[in-house]
Design a protein around this nucleic acid. Structure first.
Length: 459
RNA sequence: GCCGCUAUCGUCUAGGGGACUAGGACGCCGGAUUCUCAGUCCGGAAACCGGGGUUCGAAUCCCCGUAGCGGUACCA
């Protein structure tokens, strides 16, 4: 169960917020590390100085922290390891595995236009100082990626260019830096997105030229939006921060993301994180791309919300709303917990406890009928008499009224609801009345009665 | 174009030659819970991309096709 030697890494590039796909990659690495008792290294792939910003790095760390995914080493900036990269580069230059080539990107493009795209570009060694450094790729044979999920995948070497390891100014490029870092940091298992599968032969070639043993690879299927296209901003909540703002719980997001591309053999859907850790194995991950479906996440989130102890629930709601988790909010949460699927849905349900009634003309005209005034008057009177202003007592006191007025219960309760909340949708009516308190409840009922009798009032 | 990957209900998936009249979950539809909505419970519709093989037998293995996706940068 434990393997002291297992070392995984999550290596995002800070070119924007952490997206759901990246979050899932982080989660899978984390689950694999925790399941096996291995180490998780966080490395920031920031060799692209143009696009990598401190803000983006902070966003990624923020997302990781919110998801409650911790790491054992790092964050390590790849750019700060430039010395190691340069040293490796020198070795390859010295051994002849790499060489300087004066051709620019445009030159290579032109070469391809002329010679067809069937085979890779091969450069001409030069002594020119400002020339880019390329790796010598064999013309024959193939490079095989032993993928944990897909088995051996063979790529013909001839289809690869002598690709650039470092720019003319000596700064290194991704495929080179990754290979060097993974090897020198002792990474044993690389779990990353499928979009890196065809890059892997390049990294393997670098590793071989350097005399390093390659890590094991697992390339995860990509995540798509509901339209089947690659996930992007147009698909709604696409970043971790957006998920948080939409009112999802980290534990629910972890559960949902874990299920996106991976399933248990016994169809278990709802899993606490400990259970995820216990059951997750990278080799059980599927191979086909999955579509992010927010509906299922909503459902899952609702399940997690309902299972939260009231204190934790109140805490989460308070943080989401930016309010204090005081008694009032706690009482509000108590009556909303059974109904809300996301943190965002709580406030609309309990707002009436904190603010005056906001008139909803549609709700009013829908439920307020001719006899509503008389009924509400009776309700107000009854509520004034109830011993203890609690749901059970209120229910018992109100129960005889529908019969007395010869109406169905709904004809009584809906007007009460609109009178005290302004809305035709709310938590249970007895709980709502109790939470509001006798004084407020009776006051709002009387206001409604006056309004129904034609007296001008504004809720 | 070239090099790869993938293909089970609308979506996430189970299944890995006979246990498949293809199972579960979300969503959807219907019913129940006679205070709304939500929740909960019960029921229902809904899928093996197509064509060839291999085999006594294929959702499962092989080939071809098709489609989707990824890579093909002095981006990551």
């Amino acid at each position: 169960m434990t393997s002291e030697n297992l070392r995984l890494r999550f290596a995002p590039s800070p070119t924007g917020a952490l997206h759901i796909g990246g979050a899932r990659t982080a989660l899978y690495n984390w689950l694999a590390a925790r399941h096996e008792g291995g180490a998780l290294v966080l490395r920031i792939e920031d060799t692209d100085r143009e696009r990598s910003t401190a803000e983006n790095v902070e966003q990624i760390l923020d997302a990781m922290r919110w998801l409650e995914l911790d790491w054992d080493e790092g964050p390590i900036s790849q750019a700060e390891r430039a010395d190691r990269h340069t040293a490796a580069l020198e070795r390859l230059l010295a051994s002849g595995a790499a060489y300087r080539d004066a051709a620019t990107a445009k030159d290579v493009e032109a070469w391809k236009a002329e010679h067809g795209a069937g085979r890779g570009y091969r450069g001409i060694p030069t002594e020119e100082p400002g020339a880019a450094i390329r790796l010598r790729v064999p013309d024959a044979g193939e490079t095989v990626v032993e993928d944990l999920l897909r088995g051996p995948v063979a790529f013909p070497n001839a289809s690869y260019d002598d690709f650039v390891l470092a720019r003319g100014d000596g700064s290194v490029l991704y495929n080179f830096a990754v290979a060097v870092d993974d090897a020198e940091m002792g990474i044993t298992e690389v779990v990353r997105g499928d979009d890196h599968l065809s890059n892997t032969p390049k990294q393997l070639l670098v590793l071989a030229a350097l005399g390093h043993e390659p890590p094991r690879y697992a390339h995860l299927p990509l995540l798509h939006g509901p339209d089947g296209k690659k996930l992007s901003k147009r698909h709604g909540a696409a970043s971790v921060q957006e998920l948080r703002d939409a009112g999802y719980l980290p534990a629910a997001v972890r559960n949902y993301l874990a299920l996106l591309g991976w399933g248990t053999d016994d169809d278990t859907t709802l899993m606490a994180t400990e259970e995820l850790v216990r059951r997750f194995r990278v080799q059980d991950v599927g191979r086909s791309a999955a579509i992010f479906d927010e509906k299922k996440l909503r459902w899952l989130n609702g399940r997690f919300m309902r299972e939260l102890p009231l204190d934790a629930y109140t805490e989460a709601v308070a943080r989401h709303l930016g309010r204090d988790p005081d008694e009032r909010l706690r009482a509000a949460c108590a009556i909303a917990q059974e109904k809300a699927q996301t943190l965002d849905e709580v406030w609309p349900l309990v707002r009436f406890l904190f603010e005056p009634v906001v008139d909803d003309p549609k709700a009013w005209s829908k439920v307020m009928k001719e006899d509503s005034g008389a009924m509400l008057e009776a309700v107000a009177a009854t509520l004034g008499q109830v011993d203890r202003f609690e749901p059970e007592q209120i229910e018992a006191a109100l129960a005889p009224l529908p019969d007395r007025f010869g109406v169905k219960p709904g004809k009584l309760y809906q007007p009460i609801r609109v009178a005290i909340t302004g809305s035709s949708v709310s938590p249970g009516i007895f709980e709502s009345l109790a939470a509001l308190g006798r004084e407020q409840a009776v006051g709002r009922l009387e206001t409604a009665v006056e309004r129904l009798s034609g007296v001008k009032t504004d809720g």
